[in-house]
Simulated assay, not measured.
Amino acid sequence: EVFGEAVRQRATAILVAHNHPSGNLEPSIEDKDVTRRLKQAGDILGIKVLDHLIFSEEGYLSMLEGNLF
């Protein structure tokens, strides 16, 4: 599902983003695992995952900028 439209549009890269309604911007273990798996899937498809962003009312966290990517 994450890559469906990117494949249809022949994209070479995507950004992944989701929200944390709790306001806590710290990525969970699941966030980190999903990011790792999405990067692996993207490598197989030839679609680079540029970053994974987490948004909340407090702001955002870039997993790339935070060296969590």
Rank of each mutant, 00 (worst) to 15 (best):
V16R: 01
V16C: 08
N19M: 06
A13K: 12
I47L: 07
L53W: 13
Q9F: 01
E58M: 11
Y60Q: 12
M63I: 08
D43P: 00
E26K: 15
R36P: 00
I47V: 08
V2R: 07
N24Q: 14
L38H: 04
D51Y: 11
R36A: 14
G46Y: 08
K48C: 03
N24H: 10
D33V: 14
Q40T: 12
N24C: 06
I14N: 06
G4W: 06
V34L: 12
K48D: 13
R37G: 00
S62I: 09
N67L: 08
S28L: 12
L15P: 00
L15R: 12
D33L: 15
E30H: 03
I47G: 03
L38M: 15
E65M: 13
E58F: 12
R8V: 07
E57Y: 10
K39F: 01
S28H: 10
A11D: 06
P21I: 11
G66F: 07
Q9I: 01
D33F: 03
G46L: 06
L45E: 01
A11R: 15
P27C: 11
V7C: 05
K39E: 09
I14H: 04
L68R: 02
F55A: 14
R37A: 01
H18A: 08
L15I: 14
L53D: 04
S22W: 06
I54Q: 05
K39T: 03
P21C: 09
L45C: 08
V16N: 01
R37L: 02
A41W: 04
L25V: 07
V34K: 05
L64A: 15
M63T: 14
G59H: 08
G42C: 04
P27G: 04
G23Q: 03
K39W: 00
G42A: 02
L38E: 08
A17Q: 10
Y60T: 07
N19I: 14
K32P: 00
L50T: 03
H52C: 11
D43V: 01
H20R: 13
I14K: 05
N67W: 09
I14G: 05
A41C: 02
I54D: 04
I54F: 06
A41K: 13
E5M: 07
D43H: 11
P21V: 13
E65C: 02
S56I: 08
N24S: 14
R10K: 15
R36N: 03
S56R: 07
T35K: 01
L45I: 08
V7F: 02
L53P: 01
K39I: 10
P27Q: 06
P21W: 07
G59N: 06
E26S: 13
D43L: 07
L25R: 01
T35V: 01
E58Q: 15
V16E: 02
T35R: 03
R10N: 14
L15H: 13
E1N: 12
L45G: 05
N19G: 15
T35M: 09
H18C: 06
H18M: 07
A6V: 04
S22K: 05
L38Y: 10
F55V: 12
P21M: 09
L25T: 04
G46A: 04
L53H: 05
L53A: 07
N67P: 00
E1Q: 11
A6E: 04
A11V: 00
F3Q: 05
Y60M: 14
E57H: 13
D51C: 07
G66Y: 05
